[in-house]
Nucleic acid binder design. Sequence first.
DNA 1: GTGGTCTAGACCACA
DNA 2: GTGGTCTAGACCACG
Lengths: 119, 119, 119, 119
Amino acid sequence: MEWVLNKNKPICPQLCEQLCLRIADGTFKPNERLLSVREVALSAGVNPNTVQRSFEELEHQGILYSVRGSGWYVSENTHLATAAFERLLAEKTEAFFSEMQVLGLSGEAVKKYVEEWNL
Amino acid sequence: MEWVLNKNKPICPQLCEQLCLRIADGTFKPNERLLSVREVALSAGVNPNTVQRSFEELEHQGILYSVRGSGWYVSENTHLATAAFERLLAEKTEAFFSEMQVLGLSGEAVKKYVEEWNL
Amino acid sequence: MEWVLNKNKPICPQLCEQLCLRIADGTFKPNERLLSVREVALSAGVNPNTVQRSFEELEHQGILYSVRGSGWYVSENTHLATAAFERLLAEKTEAFFSEMQVLGLSGEAVKKYVEEWNL
Amino acid sequence: MEWVLNKNKPICPQLCEQLCLRIADGTFKPNERLLSVREVALSAGVNPNTVQRSFEELEHQGILYSVRGSGWYVSENTHLATAAFERLLAEKTEAFFSEMQVLGLSGEAVKKYVEEWNL
DNA sequence: GTGGTCTAGACCACA
DNA sequence: GTGGTCTAGACCACG
């Protein structure tokens, strides 16, 4: 699995988000075993502790579960991942609108600004 | 002056941004004296050190200047503030697109998502 | 504050439990500032990271909140702490009954066993 | 034989405990041959290594003995199993009282709490 | 090999 | 000084 990490921002939530994405989009199937904490850490170039914390956060949300001595697995119910992913998109968008409004742009103005944004 | 501050995020840049906005939009005129660091700190409910650093940051950018024993003033040339403000909008928008793309949305998809966003 | 720690069991939840107790029993008042992470770590003889994780867990439950650069505070609403504490007692008791039942004792037998327990 | 296993806790001691119980309560008679490690592992849904370690632990306590090439047997002297079983009950109860006391309940209070516990 | 937990120590921004 | 986050490395029980 590829990771897109911005090391100037907290890594842990970035891992969570991208895992959510991969479960929501079907890359990871229910009850599929993920790579081990150490393997993910190696491939992502981060510390195993950071990966462990990310997995635990998703376990807390019911999106992953762990089996001692065996590994981490995708929960049967991927609805939770899908819902969490939708929530992520909404939260980020809401935060963006909010920040722009603090800078004096109305909601409509933000929409217009984005529409004219040069990709 | 009113401040819109999210205390869970670094306060210093928030102060800088909102000062830029007020200079760019003409609320503060060239060579106008700002409230003292202490007054701003009090009204915004933050530490005076934080306000001091914000003012120094804007001085560094040529947007404010200080007069020893007197206070802080808006620079003659407000173009710098305007430019900084435009840059802020662009940076935030770019960051937003970038984050959304990591979550699997193309630039076009982001535009569409924003367009349909329920304000 | 005194800590009763069994180092053969996970420390983090033990800290959480005893903080809950102290908030629920009124030792710590709403909006009271706790000792800093480092001070608690020192007094409890554990690593600051472990204390930090405990505080974050209670923040997640709405029992504490943190102010950047200032410290950790007891939430206004101590009902959450009280409820969490009651839940702890119930969970531990339930777990005890459950373990004893696996060992062949009926619920009534467990009650009798406890009643005759020599303190 | 049925096994009641909590997979979130160490499995090996759970197997030991339940074997002790079955010997103490007479389900398994002295010199009776147990199911093979592999069979037990299969029926309990655990790793054969874990079963093996459990049997070895009980052999160490003199509760089981092994015959090379044949299998595992219940010791002639089941007193050891009975004693170990009684010790288990006492240890668990003691641990329970201890945990509750850390949470501020006196021994008497614990007894009262258990007495009023809604089964 | 795996996850689970802890220690030790570092760096950052903020007050 | 404070919290927030990360790295590095250790030890344990389990498979």
